[in-house]
């Protein structure tokens, strides 16, 4: 991968060009284009089934695409270029690209048989080859950052949903990602627990992390997002500065959606 490009500021963090994604004959992403600058926070909103989660999962190659291309910091994830075509890359290539993309899931997906500390040190030790003491030190610091410093010996099942999601964010951060993907991070939470997770995400955004967030939290989007993307039926309907899209949408479809979720 071109490591030089990772550090240069003029290369977009994410560049999505003409992406199509189909399940059988079902067209879930249709000619999607999106460019995300380093440090930008993008919120993807839209009705369920609009393809926003699928788009997010395509970025770190949890889903394959059928046409188009996706660059993350100038490199391909899960594909390599051969002439004009993309060819699926080897597992090793895909893993290396993925390490730098943190992912947070709706259902947290913490490893249930491991303590919080073990959840956080597993990948840094076994994927990045970090020495154990260093991994533990980093994990404890990150648990502290999400407000769970005293819980490192607990198992995920002993925590509330909000706490689990904060740990999941910390686990992704342990790999020192340059990009964070959030797939409806608060949708599985009790309403009173949503705030604590959004606080952690707000803190991350404040530290110049590039973030793509699929969310139904319009308030959060208005407050934290630089850009809001509205999707419907596999297409990007509207794309612009958060205040503009949320407060004076240009498209009728966007307006109708926002009226209903408000």
């Amino acid at each position: 991968m071109n490591d030089v490009a990772w550090s240069t500021a003029d290369v977009p963090a994410v560049e999505i060009r003409g992406v199509h994604k189909l399940y059988g004959s079902l067209h879930v992403l249709h000619q999607v284009d999106l460019v995300v600058a380093p440090g930008e926070v993008v919120c993807l909103i839209g009705p369920s089934g609009s393809g926003k989660s699928t788009l997010l999962r395509c970025i770190n190659n949890l889903e394959k695409i059928q046409a188009g291309l996706i660059h993350v910091h100038g490199g391909l994830v899960g594909y390599r270029r051969v002439g004009r075509d993309l060819v699926e890359a080897t597992q090793r290539q895909r893993r290396q690209a993925r390490q730098h993309i943190g992912m947070v899931f709706q259902q947290f997906n913490l490893f249930g048989h491991l303590t919080l500390l073990q959840n956080l040190i597993e990948a840094p030790i076994h994927v990045q080859g970090l020495p154990r003491e260093q991994a533990v030190e980093q994990a404890k610091a990150l648990l502290g950052r999400v407000g769970l410093a005293d819980k490192h010996g607990d198992y995920p099942a002993q925590l509330s949903g909000g706490q689990q999601q904060r740990v999941a964010i910390a686990r992704a951060l342990c790999m020192r990602p340059k990009l964070m993907l959030f797939d409806e991070p608060t949708s599985a939470l009790d309403p009173e627990l949503v705030g604590e997770v959004l606080d952690v995400m707000r803190d991350l955004a404040g530290n110049q992390m590039t973030m793509l967030v699929v969310t139904h939290e319009i308030g959060f989007a208005r407050q934290v997002a630089d850009t809001v993307v509205f999707m419907d039926q596999g297409r990007i309907v509207e794309h612009g500065p958060a205040a503009q899209v949320l407060d004076s949408p240009r498209q009728e479809r966007t307006r109708r959606f926002l009226e209903r979720v408000r």
Binding site: R95, M103, Q107, A123, M175
Partner: peptide, 22 residues
């Protein structure tokens, strides 16, 4: 649960390691 495998994949873990440790 499939999410366990996905989370491990997203962390860049190779499939042998995912099978053995997760």
């Amino acid at each position: 649960e499939h999410g366990q495998r996905e989370a491990a994949e997203a962390l860049g873990m190779p499939s042998g390691l995912i099978l053995r440790r997760i």
